[in-house]
């Protein structure tokens, strides 16, 4: 009756709303938590202390150097054809502008191909990327590479339409990458609305002039930590089932959704299993990654440091694409493993979370392990609105719903426990 007990305690029993309440306490205390900040380190200390207080085992952190990028003050102002403040957010790793800013004529393109076609007219200008949103995975290349592509043509800065399918005039930040051997030019995102407006202005033949000011700076890498807590396995403690999410966030909003919800879903799953006195045969390990937003920095360091342990990772789970109403799991692994998961999820019919889809694309930090053939899963949930809030000031505690978190925790904790407790290892190549 293990699964029914977990479901009952979370939906109507004394563990009801604990994931939401613990997340809210954390978010209200720390707000957003960018890598390299003292606030993130304080948040990590808080989680270590809470883990000990709530009885988790082998609680510790593992150090890793992470990028330290600081936004500073920033603004973008449309000067011509009329005056308007443009809501903007500098992109992570961007250089700043000179102190007086950059005032330049702007040119709008809808794609990298259009940029190539007008390459002769780009020199000395601010390039605005007004790309159409297709999907996050397909469109995010404009955020990542806009600055490098435009710099190759002599542009002085880039402004990128935010990578979101829906906008209430919200800019959405995120990491960007400079290519080798190109001039590093300042780059920021603007809102979809402003991007569309600037395109219309250009199409009417109007001359666009923008003043961009950014104080962004990159400092030497700083020490941060992955946060680890366990329930030690009762019979095969060397074998490990990982549940995870990332504790860092962007420096806007509160990072309640990305990835406070995922981190607390994983961490509180262990807390509630411990509270219920459920100790599986294998070790259950919660890992709260650091510096995911800067390029999976904490995960890469962890995988490297635990290379010798890789064969003992039985199953790896991560939630980093929303904790809305859960539907099941997204899975990567061989077909037999999917069958095992389907059998486990059939235990959760009462809460309608029986679907298994492939692949496990909502778990960026576990991709290193998945690519080595270790089976894993991410949370399948009603995340249609996830990218409305993603990396924006709208990512606050209001995105999270106590009932959805109860259901998601019931699913997450049940799967983690059963996988860690059944006789057979999860099938793998």
């Amino acid at each position: 009756t293990v699964v029914n007990r977990i479901i009952h305690s979370l939906l109507v029993g004394d563990l009801q709303n604990t994931t939401y309440r613990r997340l809210a306490e954390f978010i209200d205390k720390f707000g957003n938590r960018i890598a390299g900040s003292e606030n993130l380190e304080n948040a990590i200390d808080y989680m270590l202390n809470k883990s000990v207080e709530l009885g988790l085992e082998n609680v510790h952190s593992e150090e890793v150097y992470v990028p330290h990028w600081v936004r500073g003050n920033e603004s973008a102002v449309l000067i011509q054809p009329r005056y308007q403040n443009l809501n903007m957010l500098g992109l992570g790793s961007s250089v700043g502008t000179p102190v007086d800013g950059i005032t330049a004529e702007a040119v709008v393109v809808d794609s990298f191909e259009e940029l190539e076609n007008i390459a002769a007219h780009v020199y000395g200008k601010i390039v605005i990327f007004n790309e159409r949103y297709i999907s996050y995975g397909e469109t995010v290349k404009y955020r990542q590479f806009a600055a490098s592509k435009a710099a190759e043509q002599g542009a002085v800065a880039t402004l990128v339409r935010s990578i979101t399918p829906f906008s209430l005039n919200t800019p959405h930040t995120g990491w960007q990458d400079y290519s080798d051997n190109v001039t590093k030019i300042p780059t920021a995102c603007i809102t979809a609305e402003d991007s569309h407006m600037l395109r219309r202005m250009q199409d009417r033949g109007e001359r666009i002039i923008i003043k961009l000011k950014m104080e962004a700076q990159t400092f030497s890498p700083k020490l941060s930590r992955n946060t680890i807590a366990e329930i030690k396995g009762g019979e095969k403690p060397e074998k490990v089932v990982v549940v995870s999410g990332h504790l860092d966030s962007w420096d806007v909003g509160e990072g309640a959704m990305d990835d406070g919800g995922g981190a607390f879903l994983s961490w509180n799953s262990l807390v509630i299993l411990k509270y219920l006195g459920l100790r599986p045969k294998r070790t259950l390990r919660a890992i709260l990654w650091t510096a995911e937003e800067e390029g999976l920095v904490g995960a890469q360091a962890y995988v490297k440091a635990h290379k010798n342990e890789t064969q003992n990772f039985n199953f790896v789970m991560e939630s980093d694409e929303g904790t809305f109403t859960p539907l099941g799991l997204k899975y990567t692994g061989i077909p037999d493993g999917k069958c095992v998961l389907e059998a486990i999820l059939s235990l959760l019919k009462d809460i309608n979370t029986t679907t298994v889809e492939e692949p496990a694309d909502g778990g960026p930090d576990i991709t290193f392990w998945l690519s080595e053939g270790i089976p894993g899963a991410s949370l399948l949930n009603r995340a249609e609105s996830y990218f409305w809030y993603h990396h924006s000031a709208a990512d606050t505690m209001d995105v999270e719903d106590p009932e959805a978190l109860n259901l998601a925790t019931a699913l997450w904790a049940s799967v983690a426990y059963v996988v860690a407790d059944i006789t057979a290892d999860m099938p793998r190549k």
Binding site: D336, A343, D421, I422
Partner: peptide
């Protein structure tokens, strides 16, 4: 309860299916 159409497509051994069902 797990012997629905979805699970019947699978190749996992019946004893493992029974073991998983016991967690309900």
């Amino acid at each position: 309860t797990i012997f629905n159409n979805e699970v019947n497509q699978c190749t996992i051994p019946p004893e493992l299916q029974k073991e998983i069902a016991s967690y309900k």
